[in-house]
Design a protein around this nucleic acid. Structure first.
Lengths: 243, 243
DNA sequence: CAAATAGTGTCTATAAGACATTATAGT
DNA sequence: ACTATAATGTCTTATAGACACTATTTG
């Protein structure tokens, strides 16, 4: 018997604490100018009837990212959604049943993709994040209030230097649509003229198409449509006012 | 039997995949102008003899942050070290023995605190990060190369807008010492004059004491000593050149 | 004295914000 | 024509970087 074989036998006997690992996903979209997140109403105890982030156990043979993608697909039917790990939560009593460590993810889809995701039943829908985060009051199941608050903070921070904002838009979008993403998530008003000059000057961020946006009922000059460029980050960043 | 009691009984029977959860800590310090990280030489299989980040299983009743603090204390004797979660890694085969998900942390200490940490034996010491991250080559045990690379990237990014740099310094430090932290971790040279003006103008960052640094063998005017202020982040940030 | 480091002042190029102006649509 | 939105231009102010200059130490 080799050293390694001996070790592997020993190791089976090691008493490591029984822990379950789950992934939870905060899926965001922009709806009516408000940042919204997908929640599932729990049908079982604990927290029966309460709203919670979608998620579930990781399976043998799948990586954490794959588990998050699978859970999102199972709960919403969405595929090819950009997922990004937020952080992990593992307070001993965060699940009353047993020790559960959850690895959380952030996902973003355009509003148009979102309805399919949540249309199947009354127990899955998008909620305005603002309404779910009243200071100090617990609203969601488990520690999902904290996770949601952290997720929103991360999204707000990432707008400054990542391409995340564009994921809230259709593949082709106008600069005004992009600006409304920033305005909704940061809760500020941005000068349209300065915003336009800023984003168009960031190398690799936006690629102008020869298309124009359809006319809106409000009138006004049609806007050019842009696609996402090849940049991986915003250099220089779009700085958040008043922060 | 209530609904909830029934559920709890059912739940014991649920077959969730057997997973172990560990915490790993990347403890950084600055030594001879180089960013260094604490590694432990593994005495057992797998990866016997290879260097790895310190870490271990989480215990029942302790939160993830507490587990990281405990592991750091057990391996180095250090207490009251600022720990920050990096992210989690859970590829199915990252540990050949079984499914292990690790939650990783970043810690930072001044050089003066570091020797105690690693002085106990030949199998715990600080290594220059630069020497451990040759492009594409695997050096450390498990997936710790990837973890270390991600940790360094996070540290580099956090210098821009957090107070992290000051944690590499003693409680009272000179602006030149602070500047050398930035220079070492970013791998750049910064203009001393502009750096001085920049950091002293960030509100809440530095508090001037009435002390002066001791004289160095090289001569030169003694520098004022500063303490960390009450700010939680750098506003405006210290921007990284050429990035 | 020279050399080295700390700290201040100054100039310039660049970027950000306020806001005017032009362009093109709907009603 | 009037209003609404898109896009560009202009002006002012703030900031970053280069670098000269002064201050205070060691050898």
């Amino acid at each position: 018997m080799t050293d390694e074989q001996a070790f592997l036998e020993d190791y089976d006997a090691v008493r490591f604490p029984a822990v379950a690992v789950t992934v939870d996903v905060a899926l965001f979209t922009l709806r009516a100018g408000r940042l919204c997140v997908l929640l599932i109403r729990r049908g079982d105890h604990p927290f029966k009837g309460r709203w919670a982030l979608p998620g579930g156990f990781i399976m043998p043979g799948e990586d954490l990212d794959q588990a998050a993608a699978r859970e999102l697909r199972e709960e919403t039917g969405l595929v090819d959604v950009n997922l990004e790990q937020l952080r992990s939560y593992g307070a001993p009593k965060r699940d009353p049943r047993m020790r559960v460590v959850t690895v959380t993810y952030i996902a973003v889809v355009p509003d148009a993709d979102a309805p399919d995701a949540a249309s199947d039943a009354a127990d899955a829908r998008f909620w305005p994040v603002e309404d779910l985060l009243p200071a100090g009051r617990k609203v969601l199941a488990f520690d999902h209030d904290k996770i949601l608050a952290d997720a929103r903070e991360r999204v707000q921070a990432e707008l400054e230097h990542s391409l995340l904002a564009a994921l809230f838009c259709e593949p082709e979008f106008t600069i005004a649509e992009l600006r409304r993403v920033y305005e909704a998530i940061w809760g500020v008003e941005l000068d349209p003229a300065n915003f336009q000059r800023k984003v168009t000057s960031i190398p690799g961020f936006l690629i102008a198409t020869d298309q124009q946006s359809g006319a809106t009922s409000a009138g006004g000059r049609p806007a050019r449509l842009f696609r996402l460029g090849e940049a991986k980050s915003l250099q220089p960043p779009i700085s958040r006012p008043g922060k």
